[in-house]
Design a protein around this nucleic acid. Structure first.
Lengths: 329, 329
DNA sequence: CGGATACTGAAAAACGATTTCTCGACCCGA
DNA sequence: TCGGGTCGAGAAATCGTTTTTCAGTATCCG
């Protein structure tokens, strides 16, 4: 910057004024400075700028597993929105470990990010909560019930889509429905609640079952295997999450079961395989781009000091041939 | 930091020494400082640290499309390796735009990242090359032929896997093989070269064809559609990339073609759908985790000033039922 | 011509750390 | 007891910018 000032024959303060759009600059000086900047290819050091301005123009994004299609799409969409507004994104991947969640929140704070968007792997972890508590920057939480006062939430309305899904199965005559879920997180709770509500509304006895474990392909496979090996396997399986869906499908396929005929199946998240599977798989779909975009928009609003409210985005059931009438025994 | 120094009754420089492991610290002072740090919950400002130390402990990762499964896995793996070494990752998503590529490189430079890992969408774009030229930090390039002197590369050996694939198809009697590719980038060139080499080695006339466009689901669908609508459609299609594969599959499926019987098909990248499709899809597979890990390791070595060489990771053909003997006409 | 207005320069004080320099205290051997 | 070496810690400079303050010049207006 000193060189620029020298070349343009002005004071450093003037260079700063020109570059940061201060009103008191004459066109003459402006052009001289800009010419010098262009000639030297000068680019202000964002680090020094951040230190002085006390804002980094950086948003931390702490995600559970970026290699999960769902998160990848959310991140992509959020990054676009943030970048358009001049922010960069610092990404941390916790590999579904609660300890890393907390460590990452602290790390992001230490890096003085202007805000944090996160999706934790454990809603109650005291360490994570403590780390969040100490934060003095805006926080947007993705689809989790984290007891944190200041945070703003982007929820998915899992219930709506899941109720449609269960209603569809009930209409097809299914009564013995099994739902596979991962950790006890908001999405899982919502899905369970939707299933229970559907039975109750119709005055049906609770002849469903739940299998809970982790949101992983492996557990999806194991859970599906266990269900099928029971004396009375369910007539329909709902996999709560795309990883669980992938795992379940492997097993269903290995056993030679034809979906929609031998057993009905509903997945979550409309990933490529859902549409391309034979038969196509009915899923509860949500708009990942909207989730990322909303999270970013909320963050920007918080940073601008605007009043904001939690956002709830819809989900919808996409009926496909993987659901069929219950097989007559 | 001043408060810590005050509470501990020492100078700020002593606090710094304790915290950054300087040898000249007495145990008495150390314990007093640490006690003060703990009491105040003090965490050094990484921003100020970066400014002074002239290193940010941050690596920029400029990727084409993070929502592409391939990149998502690479990023996840690289992030883990970098984080373990104490680095954070600044992620930019160029949405396959060459202009954004260049802008992002400049942005990362301005943020004073310690190094950049990137996968550009255009190997020759002069703006991008100019931006790279000006960089004075280590650069690791993912599977691209970018004419940049100092950069270190992580290549995929697409040829090996593709030659196996083509050999497999030729063995099955296919002669009219069509290959769909995206932009002219290293992976596409390698795949083409492998195909040509296979024919030539066997002394076969070049009865293959290439269709080039963009690496997108849409183009994959369009290209496959065009091929099938021709008077003499190919007896086998190779899709060069997972997005192209997804697009092609949609069309093949819509036309009711049974893979491995009516037409043979080879995809790229072993994404979930390949294994779960009916029939399972033969693919040229590569180890995404290894790619991300290698890129990160190379970066760390460069940062440590160690001598490094380009890395080439293998690919392999996974034969599956989507390839069958050529249909007798 | 007086005074308001607009611009610019120079200098200094941040921002929050690290690092160099310097100096005092202490120990040891002669 | 003194010189030299080591150890430990404070003071001050530094990283690259922004911001503030103040002063000063030039221009403009009536």
């Amino acid at each position: 910057m000193r060189e620029v000032a020298q070349l343009a024959g002005v004071a450093m303060s003037s260079v700063s004024r020109v570059l940061s759009g201060h009103p008191d600059v004459s066109v003459g000086m402006q052009s001289r400075v800009l010419a010098a900047v262009a000639e030297l290819g000068y680019q202000p050091d964002l680090l020094a700028q951040s230190l002085r301005r006390q804002e980094t123009m950086t948003i931390g994004f702490a995600v559970g597993d970026i290699s999960n299609q769902l998160f990848a799409e959310i991140v992509a969409s959020a990054e676009t929105t943030l970048r358009t507004a001049g922010y960069s994104m610092l990404l941390t991947n916790s590999e579904a470990s609660a300890e890393l969640d907390a460590a990452h929140i602290r790390l992001l704070a230490q890096r003085r990010v202007d805000g944090i968007i996160l999706s934790v792997g454990d809603e109650q972890n005291p360490d994570t909560l403590a780390a969040l508590e100490r934060l003095d920057v805006p926080v947007v939480i993705l689809d989790r019930d984290v007891p944190m006062p200041g945070a703003v939430n982007v929820f998915s309305d899992h219930r709506r889509g899941m109720r449609q899904a269960v209603a569809h199965l009930l209409d097809l005559g299914h009564r013995d429905i099994a739902m596979i879920n991962g950790q006890t997180l908001r999405p899982a709770r919502e899905r369970r609640a939707a299933l229970e509500a559907c039975y109750e509304e119709r005055g049906l006895p609770p002849t469903y079952r739940f299998v809970d474990g982790t949101f992983s392909v492996e557990f999806g496979a194991r859970a599906a295997g266990d269900l099928l090996s029971q004396e009375h396997p369910p007539t329909a399986i709902i996999a709560g999450g795309n990883q669980l869906m992938l795992g379940s499908l492997k097993v269903l396929r290995a056993r030679g079961l034809r979906l929609g005929r031998d057993i009905s199946f509903v997945g979550c998240d409309d990933i490529p395989v859902s549409e391309l599977y034979d038969p196509p798989i009915a899923v509860v779909r949500r708009d990942t781009a909207a989730m990322g975009h909303s999270a970013a928009e909320l963050m920007l609003a918080l940073l601008a000091g605007e009043p904001v409210e939690d956002v709830t985005l819809p989900s919808e059931f996409v009926a496909r041939a993987s659901c069929g009438p219950v097989a007559k025994t």
